[in-house]
Amino acid sequence: MKPFVQCSGIKKSFGSKEVLKGVDLIVEEGKTLVILGGSGSGKSVLLKIIIGLLKPDSGRIFIEGEDVTDYSEKELLSIRRKISYMFQWGALFDSMTVFDNVAFPLREMGVSENEVEERVAEKLSILGLKDAGKLFPQDLSGGMKKRVALARSIISEPKCILYDEPTAGLDPITANQINKLIRKMQQMLNITSVVVTHDIKSMFYVADKVAFLYEGIINFYGDIAEAEKSGSDTLKEFIYGGERNGV
């Protein structure tokens, strides 16, 4: 299997707080990797390091075999055409309408305005946002913001998408639609995906591989069946904890 993203020995501290203590991780091309981990374990930090928004203190990042660790902001441009990042809290531009937010990546790439109109309208309607195009982010509910952020991250159909908790805070039906969409994007367009989630149902639906980030390192990496068999107790508790307690 060809790795699309490879992290090796990634360390990152903020002040005296060591968040990542040597993360080794592979995301296979065309597959979906789900990253599990407790709150504050550094999942978002890891995604930001992969796309170059944060620099690791040590360790290397390879994208399609290319070492991008020390790339400047300008050199990272080519990487950012290939990988998009759906921010955990949306990070929608407040000064722009929903339509302009979703259109942003396409306009940056110089896509013609006709095509922009068409593609944005299509994505908005898939995500049930058909009538929201003219609204501003402050007029949206939390779940709508999440869907706009999702639309913005998939609009350019990049080779790889990093989803940071795409279903958190959504009702079960919408969450399910989003899971399906992530799966569909991966299967139809062969998009490599990384999904950070706390939503175990979502994990079962989308994951090819699972990685468990615990105490700054990858505590488990493998497929779901393996996780059930050989994962650490902490991981099993993470996956089945809620259900065993009869929830």
Partner: peptide
């Protein structure tokens, strides 16, 4: 500043905008 703390500046960078 608001854009920065709500990650909008990071969002710009992540989409290849300066």
């Amino acid at each position: 500043g608001t854009m920065n703390v709500t990650e909008q500046i990071d969002a710009l960078r992540s989409m290849g905008a300066d």
